[in-house]
């Protein structure tokens, strides 16, 4: 009987969350799937069952080049956020010795995040532009004599802004994993004659894997669905899957947008499933 009431109280306690997920996650996603089979004209969406949206999407070379481009951004951003994030987390976890300092340094990294993401993104434009701070500095120092053009409205600018926005999301979970590594393991490795690099390779990296996996999932899914960074930093010259969807929304071509959305969702789920094989999130918290 006791287990019966406790079960009932579990259901009571979980019901608000379950309800919100049902109404604002499950049903909307199902709606997208349904609408992706609908037809449309310039002004309306028309209930139907057609495969045209998918046929065009999957048959078009544009789709493939857009996916390749998006994956390129995702992979490049992932590599850089991982390298930078791991190094920063390593420094904070193993070289900063007092908790107070760890908190202060973390705060220092977090403050910029309280300014709107979009404002932080566009702040790169006057920095990297043809007459921007960086180019003026380089020219004044005599390092280059023509402004560097690749700095803005380019793939470089897109990846730079992504790395700028999302590295912290890599630092936090990796730092969290590192803090849970038993310090005596590291001493044991050192006592056994392992060099600093060997300790890093065979003790710290393997034990930080859960944090790395969680950070990677976060960064990759965000970049795969991004459209603002690509739009603003490429000067409208590059396409990404998210941008394609947002353009189709802008043209009121909801069924086409829904079909793109379904394909994107499947892609992201495949990537995440692969990453989850590396780590059991529920155990690692």
């Amino acid at each position: 009987m006791a287990s019966d009431t406790s079960k009932r109280s579990s259901y009571f306690l979980i019901s608000p969350m379950a309800l919100i997920f049902a109404v604002f996650l499950v049903i909307p996603l199902l709606t997208i799937v349904v609408v992706s089979f609908w037809d449309y004209d310039e002004y309306r969406i028309l209930p139907d069952f057609i495969l045209e949206n998918y046929k065009y999407l999957l048959g078009s070379s544009v789709t493939w080049s857009i996916y390749l481009n998006t994956l390129k951004y995702a992979v490049l951003t992932w590599v850089f956020t991982l390298l930078i994030g791991f190094t920063v987390a390593y420094f904070l976890a193993f070289h900063v010795r007092s908790l107070t300092w760890q908190i202060v340094l973390f705060m220092l990294c977090t403050i910029p995040f309280w300014t709107s993401n979009i404002i932080r993104m566009i702040s790169w434009i006057p920095f990297l532009g043809r007459n921007g701070l960086l180019n003026s500095a380089l020219i004044n120092l005599g390092i280059v004599d023509q402004p560097l053009e690749f700095l803005l409205f380019s793939d470089f600018a897109v990846v730079l802004a992504d790395v700028h926005l999302y590295t912290l999301f890599m630092v936090v979970p990796i730092f969290n994993s590192m803090m849970r590594i038993d310090r005596s393991l590291i001493e044991a490795a050192r006592d056994a004659g392992a060099s600093g690099f060997e300790t890093l390779k065979s003790v710290i990296v393997p034990l930080s894997k859960p944090g790395i996996a969680i950070g990677s999932i976060f960064v990759i899914t965000v970049v795969m669905g991004d459209f603002i960074t690509v739009r603003l930093m490429s000067g409208g010259q590059s396409a990404s899957v998210g941008l394609q969807i947002s353009n189709e929304i802008g043209l009121l071509q909801y069924p086409a947008a829904a079909a793109s959305a379904v394909v994107l969702l499947i892609t992201v789920l495949l990537i995440v499933t692969a990453l989850l094989r590396l780590v059991d999130i529920r155990k690692e918290l």
Binding site: P126, G129, L152, F153, S234, G235, G236, Q237
Partner: peptide, 24 residues
Amino acid sequence: KKAGQFRAFWKSFDESVNLMASGE
């Protein structure tokens, strides 16, 4: 485009103003 002719594309009135005013 492939030859690198374009600096950017614009969608709104003000973007065109900013591109021109900044000398991009």
